[in-house]
Design a protein around this nucleic acid. Structure first.
Lengths: 186, 186
DNA sequence: CGCGTAATTGAAAAGTATCAACACTGGTGG
DNA sequence: CCACCAGTGTTGATACTTTTCAATTACGCG
């Protein structure tokens, strides 16, 4: 549920040592929102360390969290490829370090570097699969089963991520989340 | 909600005229399920005509429909790229014609044909965005609002797609779906 | 200490699922 | 031509789940 991508991280860790690299390192403080929804964006990012949430704010005012990004995760690539606006907001949950690359350079790399090209394909394919499986599980199970599934995948989840965020990830109210959590404990 | 991809369809319509093409045309009868869940698959497909549903069957026995595929839509690509098993089932809702290509040839094309490479990136980026927006809307709105949204996007939806499928797309029971539909009508 | 954010809990209202019965339709065989 | 059947669609009553609203407590930090 906190997603990672070792392969991509490794690639970029190496790439950044080259003098000709397009990647730049940047630090982001906890709780800062550094991509807003529906904005034209000009960079693609890969996470070096820390955790961020990727969420959509609805007309109802609710935030629905798509994923939690961990080490090696990529974002901004969809916008770069489609030449569109951001459709998610990105906000740091912990202090972060990221690798940043301008979209033009990202597209250039994509075209000229076959290894990079493949890595990005893999990353995007994983996103598609992840979303498909998670959303269909989410939709067709009760809060209780969803929560049990989360706890199984990430036993120490609650120590990292605020409860409101977990509720937003599951798409339920904090009240319901708490009730179910209490039921499970006993 | 019935997704399409004109650009990709055009590309393949041209490609298939070449003597050297890897693509093969195939017909699929209405109501046949031609990709099952959790099977190793060996081809990638692009739809020439017709409509298919892409769904996941849960441990509860429920089917959750991810998307309805229309002309130009691509599938099997995630499995090809990740070298994995199918995570969705694909079933024809109408009689269909599809373009078929072996995964090995698909990957070869991806590597050697820059135009094709870009088209596939675009298609995958669209899938990611589509899933993100649709699922977050789905999660944070009532059946009624979801249904109104659907009707707005596809006024003639009900004439093409069985109600049970629409309910499965929204992740609700047929009973609830019907009640809400009735409320809306008046 | 006092402030704001996060977490907890209760009671009532709203939304959805479950179960079960019945209606409509098109196709098939006698 | 009719009887039958399977698939699809419709509807009601009830039980269950989740949200809404509101009040209270716990915690970290200047």
């Amino acid at each position: 549920m906190i997603r990672t991508n070792t392969e991509l991280l490794e690639y970029i860790s190496n790439a950044i040592k080259m003098p000709s690299t397009y990647f730049v390192e940047e630090k982001i403080k906890k709780n800062t929102c550094w991509i807003e929804q529906n904005q034209k964006i000009f960079h693609v990012y890969v996470i070096k360390s820390g955790v961020a949430k990727c969420y959509l704010t609805q007309d109802t005012g609710n935030d629905f969290i798509q994923e939690f990004f961990g080490e090696g995760e990529l974002f901004g690539e969809v916008e770069a490829i489609r030449d569109g606006q951001s459709f998610c907001a990105i906000e740091a949950i912990l202090d972060m370090e990221v690798y940043k690359i301008a979209t033009t350079h990202f597209l250039e790399l994509l075209e000229n570097d076959k290894v990079f090209n493949k890595l990005i394909f893999k990353s995007m394919a994983s996103k598609i699969k992840y979303k498909a499986i998670r959303h269909s599980y989410n939709q067709s199970h009760s809060i209780k089963l969803n929560l049990l599934r989360l706890k199984k995948q990430f036993p120490n989840l609650f120590s990292i991520i605020p409860k409101q965020d977990i509720a937003n990830y599951l798409g339920v109210t904090l009240r319901s989340f708490n009730r179910v959590l209490q039921e499970i404990e006993k």
